[in-house]
Design a protein around this nucleic acid. Structure first.
Lengths: 127, 127
DNA sequence: CAGGATCCGTTACGATACTG
DNA sequence: CAGTATCGTAACGGATCCTG
C-alpha cells in the first residue's frame, strides 16, 4: 500500500490507484502523534472534551479539537452532544477506532519494552 | 505511559517521571508519517538510500535522510557504509526496528480493512 | 463547557546547489 | 551515490480572543 506500486498507468488499475491514494491519505491522517495519543487515551472509555484534555498530556485546546474532528470525520470516534447548558460533549471510540487502538497499544508496549535499549543506542550515537 | 500520570511530584518518583518523558519523546519520534513509512518499506530487506527513496513514495531527499538519522540514533535501523566509490550505504531494520514493524504492519492492515468504512464515514460527515 | 476564529512564532518540508 | 547546507514557503501549533 504504502510503498510504491509499480502500476504503469494502465486504465484498468484506475480504481486500484484511487484506493491506494485514499489509503495513503488515511495513513497520513492517523499516523500522527496527537491522533494516536487521543485514541490511546480514549481506550474503552467515554470521555468528555475536558477530561480528554486532561488525559492527553500536553495537548492544546486547538490540537485536540482539530484531531477530534478529523477522527470523527474518518469514523474512528463517535461524538455525542448533550443539549444541556453548559453543553456536555462525549467522545467514544467506534469499532474501527477500537480496532486501530490495538495497534496503538502495540506501539506503546513496544516503547516501554525497548526504552532502555533505545536510551543506550542514543548514548552510543551521540558519542 | 502516554496518558497523564497523577504523580504529585514525590521525590521517589523522579526516575519514573524521567522514564515517562523519555517514552514520550520516543513515541513522538516514531509516531510520524515518514518514520513509519520507512520502517514499513524496509521490512525484512536491506536497502540502499536510493532504493529506499524509490520505495517510500513521495518522500524527499531531505526527509529521508533526516528520518533515517533519527531512526539510526534510536537504534531502529542499522546503517552500513561501504567505503567504495561511488559510496554504497545500506539500511536494515535492527531487532527493535523489526519489532516495531509488526505494529506498523497492523496499522497498514487496518487501513486497508477499513478503507470502505472510512470512505463512507467521510461521505456522511462531509454532508 | 465546548469550540470556533484570529494572530503569530516555530517548525516541517521541498528545491536547489555543493562536497567527498 | 549519499549526504550536508541554505533558503523560502507552507503548515503546525500555542495563546488568546469571542460565542451559544
Amino acid at each position: 500500500m504504502v510503498t510504491k506500486q509499480l502500476l504503469k498507468g494502465l486504465p484498468e488499475n484506475a480504481d486500484l490507484r484511487r484506493a491506494d491514494s485514499l489509503a495513503r491519505e488515511i495513513f497520513s491522517d492517523v499516523a500522527n502523534k496527537w491522533a494516536l495519543l487521543i485514541i490511546e487515551a480514549l481506550g474503552e472509555r467515554t470521555l468528555r472534551f475536558g477530561e480528554l484534555r486532561n488525559e492527553v498530556e500536553g495537548v492544546s485546546h486547538k490540537m485536540l479539537t482539530q484531531n477530534l474532528r478529523m477522527l470523527e470525520r474518518n469514523g474512528l470516534v463517535d461524538r455525542k452532544v448533550h443539549p444541556t447548558v453548559p453543553p456536555r460533549v462525549e467522545y467514544t471510540l467506534t469499532e474501527p477506532g477500537r480496532a486501530l487502538r490495538t495497534a496503538v497499544d502495540a506501539i506503546c508496549g513496544w516503547t516501554h519494552q525497548y526504552l532502555g535499549h533505545i536510551e543506550s543506542a542514543r548514548g552510543r550515537f551521540d558519542a
